[in-house]
Write a protein that binds this DNA or RNA. Structure first.
Lengths: 322, 322
DNA sequence: TTCCGTTGCTAATGCGCATTAGTGCGACAT
DNA sequence: ATGTCGCACTAATGCGCATTAGCAACGGAA
């Protein structure tokens, strides 16, 4: 329509006239006019094939991104991811098809995996399969994990929440209020985030010279003599508060509770727990930023974002007498 | 690695051995073994280019899919969309990049539009630009709108909520309770969904022989003598209830309120409004199903899903005496 | 022996773009 | 008249796949 070759259109479209090849302003305008008239848009698939770049970022989650019920674990991360992708002019590809079989966890790699269609990928999940990480690294697929990950045959690019300092600070605060016997309730392993919390607790206890005990479940908590309990997740904190109430204990007068991870959004409990806020949205944003950087300059960036302490009302001075 | 040509691998990969071309079982197994060993996955971009099919469905929304605040309008639809896409083995491409400029609404068509990368597209939004619809139809891009749309140079494929019968049923119910003077509060136009509600109201009033009035805002409502008010949206209903309370009116004793569209999730108000439930999740599911059908067999399907009535507690018999 | 049909595979092509190595042409110098 | 150079553009190629036409080898029928 403009009487020029496909090459010329491509050059005009990509504004490459500056470099080596030259296109006269008249021709350029003519081409641009036709593009405007017809609304021509380059085929993204062909572009990807030729250019090896798409401006599409994949988002992988092991469960549904849009959960029907349940408190939404992914949502705050995704808010940040979408914000940042929008600013970067990128589209997001959700790997919803990744479910291997009925009722099974999604898989990153499958026969039909469209992961390579994206320029890179953001990984979401409390835990990530080690095998998946190994393979992502081995195949040199650009990605960034949201949440710290242990090495998997090499350093994993991530942006995580910096749990240990936050937990240590809370332990210190409890110690300052006179608590000498503290309990951590939770598995403290499995997910890196749990391990990090427990690590922070242990470090904090060591620093303050307090006595620390680690309980996997609530069993034995009330007999342990602990005056403050650090709950691995908010849900645990709520359960402990309820159990305490059932025993006629007042929180925080008789028992202080610290929740390691503030709620995403208003949850069933109306207790205003002392603890910290996981910067989920910021983590999502930062993950996309890092992914962009990885795509441009490579590297395996690892970042930890600080957790802001939340005062709340469940941490009080230790009772004088029991 | 298997000592065969690229063609053979392609044939094995796509299980085309049945039709015309034949591959011996031994060769097939050998190829499959290598594929398994290496974890080879076909490049989706190249595949799309050659095959003109992707198993990627686009999802277009005019605002953020993951909103930071505000009641989430899109979420229930997306739950259904993701569920169905997962079952169909499709990935979802969110067009987050579509924002033309700062603070502006997203655009379907832009210079960089990746919409053609997807096999088809699901459109979400209270309203959809008519120009966008026209162009989608003109360019024969397969798509399905969630929400009924007026023709745009041709019938628009959609799955919508069937408002008129639901509103009519509620009007009839009010009439059966003795109400003779009813008000509709809302714009009643702009979005097809508003127009449909108002249409249902007008039809219902005509059927029952009641007196119906249409108010764009709450102004004048309490002086109108209406004993029941149909609020276009739940938020309107909540505002009306509050205003009524401020005037010392009891809902529903003095004034009945019907909310045309139940809340997505628990909102600020704790009033249990009489009204109907918009089948958002089902609409999302159905949209994906229809898109799949369109891709396979073409056509411009249009479907309306019934809204289930919600009893609630804000519709009562008309007061004997005012 | 020749001819044909079948089996099992591959060479070649095109999808729509980005990129590279040219090519034709006019201006200018020799 | 001949050579040289820069300008404005194009032909050709490759990206990784699906697809189609075709080819070699072999066996059985004539």
């Amino acid at each position: 329509m403009a009487g020029v070759s496909q090459t010329t259109v491509s050059l005009v479209l990509n504004g490459k006239a500056e470099s080596e090849v030259r296109i006269s302003p008249e021709t350029r305008d003519r081409v641009l006019q036709v593009i405007r008239d017809t609304g021509y848009v380059a085929d993204p698939a062909a572009r990807r094939l030729a250019e090896r770049r798409n401006r599409i970022y994949g988002v992988f989650t092991y469960e549904a991104v849009f959960p029907a019920e349940s408190a939404d674990f992914y949502h705050p991360f995704l808010v940040g991811i979408e914000e940042c992708a929008e600013e970067a002019g990128c589209d997001l590809l959700l790997f919803t098809s990744a479910k291997a079989a009925q009722r099974e966890r999604r898989r990153i790699f499958s026969a039909e995996s469209r992961i390579r269609l994206a320029d890179g990928c953001v990984l979401l999940g409390r835990t990530v399969d080690r095998d998946d990480l190994v393979r992502l690294l081995a195949e040199r697929i650009p990605f960034v994990s949201v949440g710290r990950r242990d090495d998997a045959g090499g350093p994993v690019p991530y942006v995580g929440a910096d749990y240990p300092p936050a937990v240590r600070a809370l332990v210190a605060r409890a110690a300052a209020l006179g608590h000498r016997r503290m309990a951590y309730v939770g598995v403290g392993r499995g997910a890196e985030s749990y391990a990090d919390r427990l690590r922070g607790f242990i470090a904090g206890v060591a620093e303050t010279g307090a006595e620390g005990l680690h309980l996997t479940t609530t069993a034995g908590l009330f007999e342990s003599g602990a005056t403050v309990v650090f709950a691995e997740e908010l849900a645990d904190g709520a359960a402990i508060a309820e159990a305490a109430l059932a025993r006629g204990l007042d929180v925080p007068r008789d028992l202080s509770i610290v929740a390691l991870g503030a709620p995403t959004r208003p949850v069933s409990t109306d207790i205003d727990f002392t603890g910290f806020r996981i910067p989920r949205r910021e983590m999502g944003r930062r993950a996309v930023e890092l992914l962009t950087r990885v795509l441009e300059r490579g590297g395996n960036p690892q970042e930890l974002l600080a957790c802001e302490l939340v005062d709340g009302s469940t941490l009080a001075p230790v009772p004088d007498e029991r």
